[in-house]
Simulated scan of single mutants.
Amino acid sequence: MTLAPQILRYAAFTSDPEGGNPAGIVLDAAGLDDADLLRIAAEVGYAETAFVTGSADGARVIRYFSPVAEVPFCGHATVATAVAIAEREGPGRVRFATPVGEVRIETAEVDGALRAAFTSVEPRVEPMPEPVLAELLDLLGLRASQLDERHPPRISFAGNRHPVLVVADAAAFDAFTFDPDAARALMAARDWPATITVLHRLPDAADGGLRFEARNVFPVGTITEDPATGAAAAAVGGYLRALAEVEPPARVLIAQGRHVGRPSELVVDIPEAGGIVVSGGAVEIGS
């Protein structure tokens, strides 16, 4: 008789089960095939579910599935899984072998709560062609004049390719809407497996660090916007460094989730070179 896998549910980038981004977690998914993984992810219904499927060279092999497809990398599910492991094994370093390469995670107890910090793969940034920018603006009902001239549109990768737009006007940022089917079609056509990242720059932190609020378009099933997107936060860190908009080492704070009623905070540390470090807490969601 085969036992059903234990499915955990955690909210990442928050200390409140009602906030952050929910992730499904299966810590022992060895023996499950792709159809099983997709079926479980669809049953869980969150943006992503993480599956630890085995080990390789001392790293835990992890895969991520949305309710409709496998996703190369998922930051919030990585943080949630690392915290779940730390709760069971104690804090320390965890290595995940992901479809995009090895990702290192440090877990630690801070003020009585566990936090996890993952280091992304090496980021890269590419120009956003004008036709692609026009498609995005049309999708979101935005005008080019509403974008922030300090932060030009780009496509940034730190595990997934994310188009990055920064909207200068707060009202336009809060009010934009989109057709989920049209967004999904555009994302599929442009090979964007994760989210469209739309930012608004907030007043700088007291120490001068940059602060942004994010809305991440992610139409999957009943979901239209992601409440907290670790992979996109890493891509934003790579974007800011590539465009020399920060002086590394630098820390950037990203608020997200207000627009979908699940507020979260992501901390992005940008070193002079190498992967971007994204950190936050996670908490189990009660049944």
Results as ranks from 00 to 15, higher is better:
Pro5Asn: 06
Arg9Val: 04
Ala11Lys: 06
Thr14Arg: 02
Thr14Lys: 01
Glu18Lys: 11
Gly19Arg: 01
Ala23Cys: 11
Val26Lys: 13
Gly45Asp: 10
Ala47Lys: 09
Glu48Gln: 11
Glu48Thr: 14
Val52Arg: 15
Val52Tyr: 00
Phe65Ser: 01
Pro67Met: 14
Pro67Phe: 03
Ala69Leu: 12
His76Pro: 15
His76Leu: 03
Glu89Asp: 14
Pro91His: 11
Arg95Ala: 10
Phe96Ala: 13
Phe96Asp: 00
Thr98Ala: 06
Val100Cys: 07
Gly101Ala: 07
Glu102Tyr: 04
Ala108Arg: 15
Asp111Asn: 14
Ala116Phe: 13
Phe118Gly: 01
Arg124Tyr: 02
Val125Cys: 09
Pro131Ser: 04
Leu133Asp: 01
Leu133Phe: 09
Leu133Cys: 04
Glu135Asn: 13
Asp148Trp: 00
Arg154Pro: 02
Ala158Cys: 00
Gly159Leu: 06
Ala168Ser: 08
Ala171Phe: 02
Asp181Met: 04
Ala182Phe: 02
Ala183Ser: 06
Ala185Met: 07
Met187Cys: 08
Ala189Cys: 07
Val198Leu: 14
Arg211Tyr: 03
Arg211Ile: 06
Ala233Pro: 10
Ala233Leu: 05
Arg251Glu: 13
Ala255Phe: 15
Gln256His: 02
Ser264Cys: 04
Leu266Cys: 03
Leu266Lys: 01
Val267Phe: 07
Ile276Ser: 00
Ser279Gly: 05
Gly281Gln: 06
Ala282Asp: 04
Ala282Thr: 09
